[in-house]
């Protein structure tokens, strides 16, 4: 059986992303991508959506920013569009209204916790969600944005929305390496694969490379030795190159570094394209 081929970003798209061309620095784009994926993930959990649909949505979301600038579309809208689209692709469609409400809740919650942190630690107000009105314009505006985002994802990805998920490959590789008896390795590697969904790696590298990186991180963390000196390097069994595996590991590990609360607040203000544009204007004045 032939291997399914899925789209990956080209070298030009990686070297200069559309957002970078618009003046959004690389690390800010990276943070916004990660935050957008976190929102997709949280929304997926609240909607009790299948993990395959959530993962597919995150991969489509990551692909999208190699063909579109964050100045043109907000990570909130595109995240919603990606989850809506992926749910159809995985044959588990969700209701628009549920999705919109969940995103609204998540963003209100995030705003609440970041402002209350800044104000004072002692006066920690309890979060209370204010639902939008059923026939209000907020809902219809969000619904329009969702439909547009879904269509734009399809159009800008040329309708190449087939996604290959890494989980089956992980199970096979762990079997080949004789690691399936060690439950900690399996669950840890599985976790790295899920965390990697918040990074662009699924739009950059083939699945075997990413799976090797997850196994490498898991085994190194747990101190399990695998043959790693030339000519016997275990990742070569799976056609992965060391440089690529290492780069994926770097992408994943960057997610875990310590972050300021102000970084989080900055991201929150840039969930919509309006916020991104405002940020760009402010920083254009400074330069």
């Amino acid at each position: 059986m032939s291997v399914p081929l899925y789209p990956l970003a080209s070298l030009e798209q990686i070297e200069e992303t559309p957002s970078l061309k618009d003046g959004i620095p690389y690390d800010l784009e990276e943070d916004l991508r990660a935050y957008g994926c976190k929102l997709i993930h949280q929304a997926g959990i609240l909607l009790k959506q299948k993990q395959v649909a959530v993962a597919t949505a995150q991969i489509l979301f990551q692909r999208f920013w190699f063909v579109t600038s964050m100045k043109q579309f907000g990570i909130g809208d595109v995240g919603m569009g990606a989850l809506y689209l992926a749910s159809k692709l995985e044959e588990c469609p969700i209701r628009m209204r549920d999705l919109i409400n969940v995103y609204d809740l998540l963003l209100q919650q995030a705003t609440h916790s970041s402002t209350s942190k800044l104000v004072s630690q002692s006066k920690h107000a309890v979060f209370k969600y204010t639902p939008m009105s059923y026939f209000g314009s907020t809902f219809y505006d969000l619904k329009d944005a969702l439909v547009v985002a879904e269509m734009q994802i399809l159009k800008r990805l040329g309708f190449h929305v087939n996604v290959v998920l890494p989980y089956g490959t992980l199970v096979n590789y762990l079997r080949v390496l004789g690691l399936t008896s060690k439950e900690t390795v399996c669950s840890r590697a599985w976790g790295y694969l899920n965390d990697a969904l918040q990074t662009p790696v699924y739009a950059l590298y083939a699945v075997p490379t990413i799976v090797c990186a997850a196994i490498l991180l898991a085994t190194r963390h747990l101190g399990i030795p695998l043959p790693s000196t030339p000519p016997n390097c275990w990742w070569e069994l799976f056609d992965a190159d060391w440089e690529d595996v290492w780069s994926v590991c770097g992408h994943v590990m960057r997610l875990y570094r310590e972050r300021d609360a102000s970084d989080q607040t900055r991201l929150l203000s840039m969930v919509s394209k309006k916020g991104v544009r405002k940020w760009l204007d402010d920083h254009a004045v400074l330069n």
Partner: peptide, 20 residues
């Protein structure tokens, strides 16, 4: 060049991201 297993095509075999 490294000879890949037929199950892992080289990266260049994957299509680039191209809009409609």
């Amino acid at each position: 060049r490294p000879r890949h297993s037929i199950y892992v095509p080289p990266r260049t075999h994957h299509p680039p991201l191209t809009p409609s």
